[in-house]
């Protein structure tokens, strides 16, 4: 199933923040993880992730840091900041409330 870009856009921030809450990750790792966990339901254009990451970095929600991986490759790892963690909690609450409301509206029993 393919999602509309507008719908995906609204989910990027909570998803990235939630994943980074688990551990510091680099961009490609985030994409791989999203694809694996959603069983490729989200067909993100890979390049679109980086502007989002940079926005979050500019807002102080994540911090990017170059590190050398054990393989010898140099990658930019993103870590959730304290502000980012607060934002993540708030985004998840927001999402929960929205999805409940939308579910009720779209999938719940019809009442008059």
């Amino acid at each position: 199933m393919e999602f509309t870009p507008e719908l995906i856009k609204g989910t990027v921030v909570p998803i990235v923040l939630k994943l980074l809450d688990e551990r510091p990750m680099y961009g490609y790792e985030i994409i791989k993880l999203v694809n694996r966990r959603t069983e490729n339901a989200f067909q993100w254009k890979e390049g679109t992730l980086y502007p989002w990451l940079h926005r979050l970095e500019a807002d102080g929600l994540v911090r990017g840091e170059w590190q050398v991986a054990p393989s010898g490759r140099r990658r930019k790892y993103y870590t959730l900041t304290r502000r980012g963690r607060t934002a993540m909690v708030s985004k998840l609450e927001e999402w929960r409330a929205l999805s409940t409301a939308v579910n009720t509206l779209l999938l719940g029993p019809v009442t008059t």
């Binding site: 254009k45 890979e46 390049g47 679109t48 502007p51 940079h54 500019a58």
Partner: peptide, 19 residues
């Protein structure tokens, strides 16, 4: 898989402009 360069470049500029 990375996407269209012009589109991503524009997105990068918007995302990084404040920075």
């Amino acid at each position: 898989a990375l996407g269209a360069p012009a589109e991503i470049g524009a997105d990068l500029l918007v995302a990084n402009r404040p920075r």
